[in-house]
């Protein structure tokens, strides 16, 4: 998998994930993902549009990082998962914990509200 981050206005960070978020893919980005959600970054939008497969190990990574952000008073949301990935998030009940947006402006508002 690939992962990178870009700073948007208003202190928002967008983390871009791409590739198969299976055992191998998640292990490839796990440490960097945790690093990018650590520290003072309290408004995080995770762009899922490049992720074409999601297994439970990937959901765990999303949850763990979302939990870390939430515990220090920040917000993390997911942006633009494809249909199959959105279905897995919904089946796992994760859409209730990590809100999903299909529009960047709405996602930005959600993490800065």
């Amino acid at each position: 998998m690939n992962i990178d981050a870009e700073a948007l206005a208003d202190g928002i960070w967008k983390i871009n994930l791409a590739g198969r978020m299976d055992v191998k893919g998640t292990q490839e980005i796990d440490v960097k993902f945790a690093g990018l959600t650590a520290g003072q970054r309290n408004a995080i939008v995770v762009d899922m549009s490049g992720v074409d497969f999601l297994a439970s190990i990937g959901i765990r990574a999303l949850l763990l990082n979302g939990k870390a952000v939430s515990q220090r008073g920040g917000k993390m949301v997911l942006l633009n998962p494809d249909a199959n990935v959105a279905k897995v998030l919904e089946m796992a009940g994760i859409d209730m914990l990590l809100p999903i947006f299909n529009d960047l402006d709405a996602a930005r508002q959600a993490v800065t509200a």
């Binding site: 439970s56 979302g66 939990k67 515990q71 897995v88 089946m91 796992a92 914990l97």
Partner: peptide, 18 residues
Amino acid sequence: AAPASLAQAAIGGLGIKL
């Protein structure tokens, strides 16, 4: 069980649920 909040979310058992 369905976790009520992110802070309470148990990490695990997701594969079986899926």
